[in-house]
């Protein structure tokens, strides 16, 4: 079946829409189409990808305006009479064509206090106590949640807000049954959890079906509220001068 594909191309802010036509085969995913175009029409077409099996989270892009992993998005899900429009993630600066500079995410991650183990040689955890943590650890860092989040996408508040991905990471560490760290202050301040207004856009695009808002962000908001906005604790801090 012959299909029309329009790809955003160019370096940094200097871009244009490039139209291609190609034959679509059975079971083809959007990344196959990109590879076909690369091999035959545009050898220097830049795309980031690795596993082509939905496991590495490299090939994130916007297909007809929706944030998707291109390797898990079937061509047959889209009306063949309409052109398919593929653009890079909007929230991050374009390097070239479909490749964006996602290094900011790595900077944010580095500042989060890593796992703090207990002092024991025989750490025990029950499965039911780690189910939630394991849900968060399914994250493949595709950054689609970051891409779709209004606070980052429209308001560009990267300096104030860590984004859903890193609130999930914080939640994972905070809910880890053996972790000895405390991240509530950084979750509130540096990571700006208050900026999330619970529109759940991140949850909708997560290819790993992590309940980002309900299971990670809301419980963390509650913990922050309990810690910093509980009137009894507030009075206690005023009297004693202690921060905790």
């Amino acid at each position: 079946m012959n299909r029309k594909i329009i790809i955003q191309r160019g370096e940094k802010e200097d871009y244009f829409m490039h139209e291609f036509e190609m034959e679509s085969g059975p079971g083809m995913v959007v990344l196959d189409a990109i590879h076909h175009i690369q091999a035959n029409d545009a050898p220097d077409l830049a795309v980031r990808w690795n596993c082509k099996a939905g496991k590495c989270g490299s090939c994130s892009a916007e297909v007809n305006g929706e944030p998707k992993l291109m390797c898990m998005t079937r061509m047959s899900d889209y009306d063949p009479s309409e052109p398919l429009v593929i653009k890079p993630m909007k929230t991050f600066p374009v390097v070239k064509d479909l490749v964006t500079d996602v290094s900011w995410n790595y900077e944010v991650n580095k500042k989060i206090l890593p796992y703090q183990p207990p002092e024991t040689d025989d750490p025990r955890m029950l499965q039911e106590d780690v189910d939630r943590v394991q849900e968060f650890r399914k994250c493949i860092e595709c950054f689609l949640c970051q891409d779709v989040c209004h606070v980052l996408r429209d308001s560009d508040m990267k300096a104030e807000y860590a984004g859903p991905r890193f609130l999930v990471r914080n939640a994972m560490l905070e809910m880890h049954p053996l972790d000895q760290g405390n991240r509530l202050e950084t979750i509130k301040n540096e990571n700006g959890i208050g900026l999330c207004n619970i529109t759940k856009c991140c949850t909708e695009v997560c290819p790993e079906n992590i309940a980002i808002t309900d299971n990670a962000i809301i419980p963390m908001k509650e913990r922050v509220v309990d810690e910093y906005y509980d009137p009894l604790k507030w009075i206690w801090r005023k009297i004693t001068g202690k921060t905790n």
Partner: peptide, 17 residues
């Protein structure tokens, strides 16, 4: 790895399955 934060599936008595 477990000391570095890995969370493997567990046995009934809470060890790495």
């Amino acid at each position: 790895l477990e000391k570095w934060g890995a969370v493997f599936d567990r046995t009934k008595d809470g060890k790495i399955n």
